[in-house]
Amino acid sequence: MSVRSLTARLVTAVVVAMVLAVIIMSLAIVIYPGIMKWTAGAVCPDGFPDPFVVRDTESIRPGETTTTFTMYCMDEQGLVRDVGWFRPIIILFGALVVVELALFAIMATTSRRRSKPSPPAVAPPSPTPGPSPIIT
């Protein structure tokens, strides 16, 4: 495989992984906003071990509401740090892209192994057939 072909495949894989990650993350946040809490180990400052995803629902105009999610980290005495939503989402997005790329790599390796022709089986040498007898 040429370098150009390999680069093209890599770029395609990254683009597909990112598009898939955007779709999956959008659905995940709508269905399970608590997913942001998975990033607590990375975004919560030391001494603020308990993550909370807080929901604010506002009515902009009659019949229309918006909901926003913000992640906070809290200590034992109720002191909180606002870590927002951007950093948790970016971390989850990045992790998802990496997992997808790893899956693509595994799938590509597996399919290449399957499609590669198997080497011919070594057959025992057969005696050279002589001219068939002519029966008259």
Binding site: V53, V54, R55, T67
Partner: peptide, 15 residues
């Protein structure tokens, strides 16, 4: 929009 999140009043009560 609900699973794993709490509303602002619940959060204040926890604080």
């Amino acid at each position: 929009g609900c699973v794993g999140s709490i509303d602002r009043d619940e959060f204040r009560a926890e604080i």
